[in-house]
């Protein structure tokens, strides 16, 4: 299982945990498993269609997953993911 680091502002949605374990062979599978285990996180980071919001950043071992294969980026047991929803907006 991969380790997913939860930033402070999402911890309440993850039951207060700093890190959680989630199963999957790529970023998309790990995030699906995470959102299934912690629906409150899914509510925050997924669109109404169940897709990962384009303003949510994901890092795999500190590398931007978008610069790799995005949700298809392969991950293993030793990998650490960080989910970081953007702080963004506009008038």
């Amino acid at each position: 299982m991969s380790t997913v680091k939860i930033p402070p502002v999402l911890r309440q949605a993850a039951g207060g945990e700093r890190t959680v374990e989630a199963k999957g062979t790529n970023v998309g599978e790990v995030l699906s498993a995470l959102c299934e285990a912690h629906p409150a996180i899914g509510k925050q980071i997924l669109t109404s269609d169940g897709e990962l919001h384009k303003f949510v950043n994901v890092y795999v071992n500190d590398e931007d997953a978008r610069l790799m294969q995005w949700t298809d980026t392969p991950v293993g047991d030793d990998d650490t993911l960080l989910i970081l929803p953007a702080m963004a907006g506009g008038q």
């Binding site: 502002v9 303003f55 953007a86 702080m87 907006g89 506009g90 008038q91």
Partner: peptide, 11 residues
């Protein structure tokens, strides 16, 4: 704005 709300990921 509408965008501010749409991108408000932090409750």
């Amino acid at each position: 704005s509408k965008t501010d709300v749409e991108l408000a990921f932090f409750a």
